[in-house]
Design a protein around this nucleic acid. Structure first.
Lengths: 192, 192
DNA sequence: GTCTATACTAGGATAGAC
DNA sequence: GTCTATCCTAGTATAGAC
């Protein structure tokens, strides 16, 4: 009797790929390594992801989901308080940075690995950062900021700075100070 | 008659390598491409740089010289005014970001490409960022900041944030706002 | 039918020999 | 500057287990 196709195959492959891409970077990981780590055959991998580029984009899509999840968690922790939500978003993001093996924002890293603006991975990252900016802007506006775009930009700088600095200098660098910094900036931008 | 060894050989090779590494990233560039671009033979390249890793570190060393040059230029523009020097450093750095082909801090990009903490390129980047922090700290102290380390950390976040955000979103992102942001932070941290 | 495993192509990598 | 050795890459095709 014919076996049914395993619906979890795609996720299982993606799990293995994500872990390797996160740890070592994209170019340093070969398809064979993903096969070895994921416990699936080459045939199956190429059925689910016809090319490495598509696998990379699927990985980035998964990474990018952390951002809306962050927004939701902030909403849950400070319902009806957009200013506090902004501070919570930064705080939660900084928490994720404190780990010893933190390598920086995976999307930013992928962007660095694929400089070609036409590359699907590159385009995906640009689009995600544009979306993130719009989200911060909307939240800043609801928080009653005088200049929502200006506040969103400043928080973007803090966020991206914490990610980059934390990747290199770790918890002993500037990253842990980002939360208090963001709070001060938010307070200053939303005071009557 | 034997030709004299060209003393500019090393620089010429390094010029070609730097341009390629800057444009495409390290892993995307092969030694043969550097040979083709630099107009030198393979044996000459490997005489000057016995391995690709050493060539990469030489590239990073050259990149890292931009930082002390920035400090010197700021000193030249605002002699005897450390607070203004801090602002100038950020301003000059942001200027370099505004170009359309900006790919982000080369050191940060290299750090992302070589996650292994033992890799010479990785170690070099960590050391450079540590040095940068110390420099900012010293300047913040001379500027009379209440908490020089805190100011240095905040400026580090703005600097790294501008670099990362500018690489992805370019001049239409948050990077151009970094200079005014830094000025506000410096003013707030150094007022009597 | 579904999957793993292997062989294979065509090319590019670092590095070294000459 | 050329030529070679060794290895790894993405991707395709095939063989065979269940």
């Amino acid at each position: 009797m014919a076996r049914k196709p395993d619906p979890g195959t795609r996720d299982r492959i993606l799990d293995a790929a994500c872990r390797l891409f996160d740890e070592r970077g994209v170019r340093a990981v070969g398809m064979q390594q993903i096969i070895d780590a994921g416990g699936c055959g080459k045939n199956l991998l190429y059925r689910e992801f016809p090319s490495k580029d598509e696998l990379v984009v699927a990985w980035l899509e998964r990474c990018s989901q952390g951002w809306p999840q962050l927004l939701e968690e902030a909403e849950r922790r400070a319902p009806g308080d957009p200013a506090e939500q902004l501070a919570t978003v930064i705080g939660l993001a900084v928490e994720g940075i404190s780990g010893p093996g933190f390598r920086g924002c995976a999307l930013r890293n992928a962007h660095a690995e694929f400089p070609d603006p036409e590359h699907p991975a590159h385009r995906f990252v640009v689009e995600h950062y544009g979306q993130r900016r719009a989200d911060l802007c909307a939240l800043a506006e609801r928080a009653g900021a005088d200049d929502p775009e200006a506040l969103a930009d400043r928080l973007s700088l803090i966020l991206d700075g914490a990610s980059a600095n934390g990747a290199i200098l770790g918890p002993t660098g500037a990253a842990p100070t980002a939360t208090a910094f963001a709070r001060a900036v938010i307070a200053s931008a939303t005071e009557a």
